[in-house]
Amino acid sequence: MPSAPSERPLFLDPNLNIIFSVTLLAVLGVSSIAPVFPTVARELGVSPEAVGLLITVFTMPGILLTPFFGILADRFGRKKVLVPALLLFSLAGSSCSLARDFEVLLLLRFLQGVGAASLGSLNATLIGDLFTGRRRTEAMGYNASVLSIGTAVYPSLGGALAALGWYVPFALPIVGLAVAFAVLFRLDSVEVEPGNGLGRYLRDALAGMKNRKVIGLYLVSVMTFIVLYGAYTTFIPLHLSERFGSTAFAIGLIMSVGSLSTAITASGLRYLARHTTSERLITYAFALYGVSFAAIPMLPGHWLVALPVALFGVAQGMNYPVVMSLLAGLAPTEHRAIFMSANGMVLRVGQTLGPLIMAAVFAWGGMARVFHVAAGICIAMFLSLPLLIGRK
């Protein structure tokens, strides 16, 4: 049942803390290994374009499986989907640290991606189930801050662990076994009933998703993740390594700046919301994305790249939690998991296409062109969003 208001600060709520741990695992699969991409490419003898497949094969299962897991979670319960997913994520992910062949590594990353497919949507579904009204918005903001803290810490942690061996950061998912235990035995969850039959459930859910604003928010998600996982996560580390000779640890520190600025922005989101609407916050975020990408290839030193990375983080803090909160509010309880899982699916589409698109751009025009194309995508979204989601 939804948590009732209490004197205790919301971020100390035991259920929310367990959800935070799921969120931290959901971003572990990419953030902790991104700084070692240049090293992986050298050690395993693959090209910079090919190393992006470590993201692609990880995110690809989510394109098809995330909605399926959402249906199961709506029909049979959140825990019955989440616990097996956590176990697979942890065991397949930590096994990557044992791989010394790129093809084997890709296979294990694919299996880890199957486990990861539901994590990023079911955490938001659980927040929607357990909290209502302003507490739900506040919880989404805290969850986004925790996510960003994870993405801030993980690159530095991964870069530091890489000093012991490029494969060591791949062992980190083993901590997910403890999270699975906490979800199974400690987490409260909303009881669900199968209801009026699968056909009726699907028809009602699809009817709700045809809402123009819902479709617009899904488009925001896919475009955000194309530039996030294409230009930002994959090619900023490669740019720093190739142009400036940056070490994995330095790359991790620079990438962490963006995550920290996301965490700060998301934690203060309720103050920004007093001065403008949620829809405008998303629109402004894409303008900031565009400026940050345009600036990256012009800067003469690697530490200066931390400035547009920080600006990107501010934009992400304005964008991601607002999109999730709007979607959770638009979704009825009986369809919330499929609504959020459909968003998870489009996120995976963006994660999967982003490295492929930007690798093609890199092959065509070089590193600077990657950031120019990403900036163009963001400015196009800035101009289009008032029509897609309104201004309210």
Rank of each mutant, 00 (worst) to 15 (best):
A250I: 08
R270F: 11
E242F: 03
G258T: 11
E242W: 06
A248W: 02
G245H: 05
T265E: 08
M255R: 08
A250V: 11
R243M: 11
S241V: 10
T247K: 05
A248H: 02
A266Y: 01
A263T: 02
F244S: 09
V257K: 00
L240M: 13
A248I: 03
F244V: 09
F249W: 12
L272F: 04
S267D: 11
A250P: 09
I264D: 01
T262N: 13
Y271G: 14
S256K: 12
G252D: 04
S261L: 15
G268I: 07
S267F: 03
I251F: 01
F249R: 13
S256I: 11
L272Q: 05
E242G: 11
S261F: 14
G252P: 05
G258R: 04
I264R: 01
T265P: 15
S259T: 09
S267K: 07
M255L: 08
L269R: 07
L240A: 09
I254G: 00
A263W: 00
A250Q: 11
S267L: 06
S259R: 02
I251M: 02
S261Y: 13
T247N: 09
I254S: 01
L260E: 10
S246C: 00
S246A: 09
F249M: 12
S261H: 13
L269A: 08
G258V: 08
L240G: 09
G252I: 04
R270C: 11
L260P: 14
T247V: 08
G268T: 02
E242M: 10
L260I: 15
F244E: 07
V257Y: 00
T247C: 09
T247D: 06
L260N: 14
L253F: 06
L272P: 04
I264Q: 06
S246L: 00
M255P: 03
G252C: 04
L260M: 15
L260C: 14
L260K: 13
V257Q: 02
I251Q: 01
G258M: 07
S256A: 15
T265H: 14
V257R: 02
F249I: 10
A250H: 10
L253A: 08
S241Q: 12
G252T: 03
S246Y: 02
E242Y: 08
M255N: 04
T247W: 02
S259K: 06
G258I: 08
T265Q: 14
S267W: 05
F244Q: 12
R270D: 14
Y271M: 15
Y271C: 13
L240Y: 01
S267H: 10
S241L: 11
R243K: 13
S259Y: 00
G258W: 02
A250G: 12
G252N: 06
S267V: 09
V257D: 04
Y271A: 15
T262K: 12
I254M: 06
G245I: 00
Y271K: 15
I251R: 04
A266M: 07
A250T: 14
A250K: 13
G245L: 04
L240N: 08
G268K: 06
S246K: 00
G268D: 03
T247Y: 03
F244D: 07
T265R: 11
A248T: 05
L240P: 10
S261N: 13
A266K: 03
S261C: 14
L240V: 05
L240D: 08
S241M: 07
T262W: 05
R243V: 09
G268F: 07
G252H: 05
E242A: 11
G268E: 01
R243I: 12
